[in-house]
Amino acid sequence: MVLEVAVLNIKKGLSKDFEASFKKAESIISSKKGYVSHQLKKCIEQKDKYILLVNWETIEDHEIGFRKSDEYKEWKELLHHFYDPFPIVEHYI
């Protein structure tokens, strides 16, 4: 199993909107082949900061199966405009 980790810095004051959009986006990611589970955690010390943890069966399930899918375009439309700066995504085993 591979753990995807992304620290998400949300534009000031948009956390509630981000959380609502993420609720919609959850069904997109959870429907993809190789998806195992995910958690979105809100930072206690810094407002408008989150960490996204996604477990995938393989790195290819994330990098190819999800990111190169048509559903990823919808994910991007729902979420990417909230980030500042755009998050660095890393994978762990």
Rank of each mutant, 00 (worst) to 15 (best):
residue 34 G to C: 06
residue 18 F to D: 07
residue 81 H to E: 07
residue 42 K to V: 13
residue 15 S to Y: 08
residue 70 D to Y: 00
residue 78 L to C: 02
residue 75 W to C: 10
residue 62 H to F: 03
residue 1 M to G: 09
residue 83 Y to T: 12
residue 60 E to Q: 15
residue 70 D to G: 13
residue 11 K to S: 15
residue 18 F to Q: 10
residue 90 E to H: 00
residue 51 I to Y: 04
residue 65 G to S: 12
residue 87 P to M: 04
residue 72 Y to C: 10
residue 47 K to C: 03
residue 37 S to R: 12
residue 57 E to W: 01
residue 55 N to H: 08
residue 51 I to K: 01
residue 88 I to A: 14
residue 30 S to C: 07
residue 79 L to F: 06
residue 49 K to Y: 01
residue 15 S to G: 13
residue 37 S to I: 00
residue 13 G to H: 03
residue 77 E to L: 14
residue 47 K to N: 13
residue 28 I to L: 15
residue 68 K to W: 00
residue 79 L to A: 08
residue 29 I to P: 01
residue 1 M to L: 03
residue 14 L to P: 02
residue 24 K to M: 03
residue 54 V to A: 04
residue 37 S to D: 12
residue 88 I to T: 15
residue 68 K to A: 04
residue 32 K to F: 02
residue 83 Y to Q: 12
residue 79 L to N: 12
residue 37 S to N: 11
residue 56 W to F: 07
residue 84 D to F: 10
residue 73 K to F: 00
residue 42 K to N: 07
residue 19 E to Y: 10
residue 66 F to W: 07
residue 69 S to P: 11
residue 2 V to F: 05
residue 92 Y to P: 02
residue 26 E to W: 01
residue 38 H to M: 13
residue 60 E to S: 14
residue 47 K to W: 01
residue 71 E to F: 00
residue 45 E to P: 01
residue 84 D to Y: 11
residue 86 F to A: 08
residue 66 F to L: 08
residue 93 I to M: 06
residue 78 L to R: 02
residue 61 D to P: 06
residue 31 S to D: 09
residue 18 F to V: 01
residue 56 W to C: 06
residue 71 E to D: 11
residue 8 L to G: 09
residue 9 N to W: 10
residue 49 K to I: 02
residue 90 E to D: 01
residue 2 V to W: 09
residue 78 L to H: 02
residue 22 F to R: 00
residue 29 I to T: 11
residue 88 I to D: 14
residue 30 S to Q: 08
residue 52 L to I: 14
residue 84 D to A: 14
residue 41 K to P: 05
residue 15 S to A: 15
residue 33 K to D: 15
residue 67 R to Y: 01
residue 10 I to Y: 05
residue 60 E to M: 05
residue 1 M to T: 09
residue 7 V to I: 07
residue 35 Y to E: 14
residue 83 Y to D: 11
residue 59 I to H: 02
residue 11 K to L: 15
residue 1 M to W: 00
residue 54 V to T: 11
residue 9 N to A: 15
residue 81 H to D: 08
residue 21 S to C: 07
residue 16 K to F: 03
residue 6 A to D: 08
residue 76 K to W: 05
residue 61 D to Y: 04
residue 32 K to E: 04
residue 64 I to C: 05
residue 75 W to M: 06
residue 24 K to R: 07
residue 60 E to N: 13
residue 68 K to Q: 13
residue 19 E to G: 10
residue 68 K to T: 14
residue 6 A to M: 06
residue 65 G to H: 07
residue 27 S to V: 14
residue 25 A to W: 01
residue 8 L to C: 09
residue 4 E to M: 15
residue 39 Q to L: 14
residue 21 S to K: 12
residue 65 G to D: 08
residue 11 K to Q: 15
residue 46 Q to S: 10
residue 69 S to N: 08
residue 77 E to F: 04
residue 58 T to Q: 05
residue 40 L to M: 04
residue 89 V to I: 15
residue 86 F to T: 10
residue 51 I to G: 01
residue 79 L to Q: 06
residue 3 L to P: 09
residue 74 E to G: 02
residue 22 F to Y: 15
residue 79 L to T: 06
residue 80 H to D: 14
residue 29 I to G: 00
residue 93 I to W: 03
